[in-house]
Design a protein around this nucleic acid. Structure first.
Lengths: 204, 204
DNA sequence: TAGAAATTTTTAGCCTCACTAAGAAAAATT
DNA sequence: AATTTTTCTTAGTGAGGCTAAAAATTTCTA
């Protein structure tokens, strides 16, 4: 157990430094001086300089003011997007098979660092029932082919190709593949696929 | 100009209260006591109680510890998603026409409050050239039909149906519809469509 | 290229508040 | 109803969030 002063010092390390870099990056991208941001955020140039160089950590309220001055959000500043893009032609998708009754994933690129979106295409055979799920995040699904019975909270939807569904994943949800054909689903979720994919496998 | 003490007081209002509620909501959802979270985050129950009730604002470092103890992220705690979901069958998509050379949008539902995703389907005629864009955010595109020449930073990609591209929108980007047929694109972006859609219209 | 102007960094310091420990009160359990 | 658990309250500390002013560095201009 750290002594109080040492504990406080230890807690200063880490994220604030990346935050400072993100703030400077954003400020320069917008062509603003420290003085301009200081004025907009009602802080001083000296403090902003220290924040950007990781020598000081802003309070949440000051961080909000800085984000507003930079016309961005705290979320954007806290996650440091690096310019990394990937184009994935159809024939270069990576395929993952979980060996559970013919269901497999096509992961659509690794995504750039800090990306919010985690896209994938899921193939499921007729009759497949997904695990009932409920977790923080957001999911968007576009049905490419097949037929789904989608259970979302108390609601039940029959999905056909071209249909979409977009919901907060904290609502309990699961789906069943209807008919004689496999279902092909395009998913964009906020959680990495491996952890919480649109369907789990444990209950199957 | 506020006096120093008044200024500090004024800066305490706002977000921290919503943050406190989010923290309590998350903690209760996980069935944890203040004691357990306090232990995991190396803070005291007294402080957490005050944070949850908006009487204190945690430093960024403490907020990180709290988020870790709650197995979530700062981003999740700072944005309070409300449960609102919508299923959109194919034949119920709302269509928006901008009257610019046959391009039109099919907006895929309004999205629930606080949603990060803004999905839409865009139809563009052969030869269409989008505006060159560069703005904060993230975009994912799945090409449903047609052919695109996608310019992303210094890179140029020819997209065919089933191809995807996922990038940070701060990289300059635009696209051209190739061939004799229209292009149909499924987009999921972090910005509302009306503001910064996958293609603008001003330059056309 | 030198000097002026703009911008950023440094320094010293204040005082508020982030956070604690301990006890009281409230809620839950037995 | 008594006990245990959980949350809230209180008093207080000290460090760091943030300032003002000066110094250093960078950029711009003639």
């Amino acid at each position: 157990m750290l002594a109080p002063t040492e504990r406080a010092k230890a807690k200063t390390k880490g994220k604030p430094t990346e935050l400072g870099q993100a703030i400077r990056r954003r400020r320069k991208a917008m062509g603003l001086t420290l003085e301009q941001v200081a004025k907009s955020s009602d802080l001083t140039t000296g403090f902003l300089s220290q924040v950007e160089r990781g020598l000081s950590s802003p309070s949440l309220t000051s961080l909000m003011a800085i984000a507003a001055a930079l016309q961005t959000s705290i979320e954007q500043l806290l996650s440091v997007p690096e310019v990394y893009s990937e184009f994935v032609p159809k024939d270069q998708r990576q395929t993952y098979s979980l060996g559970t009754r013919g269901r497999f994933y096509e992961k659509l690129g690794p995504g750039f660092a800090g990306a919010l979106f985690h896209p994938q295409i899921v193939h499921r055979p007729a009759g497949h029932v997904s695990e009932k799920m409920c977790h923080d995040g957001e999911a968007f699904c576009y049905l490419l082919s097949g037929q789904l019975e989608y259970h979302l909270g108390k609601g039940i939807f029959i999905m056909s190709p071209g249909d979409v569904i977009h919901h907060d994943t904290s609502t309990r949800h699961y789906s069943v593949v209807l008919g004689e054909n496999e279902a092909v689903e395009l998913w964009v979720t906020t959680s990495p696929i491996k952890d919480t994919g649109p369907s789990g496998s444990a209950a199957e």
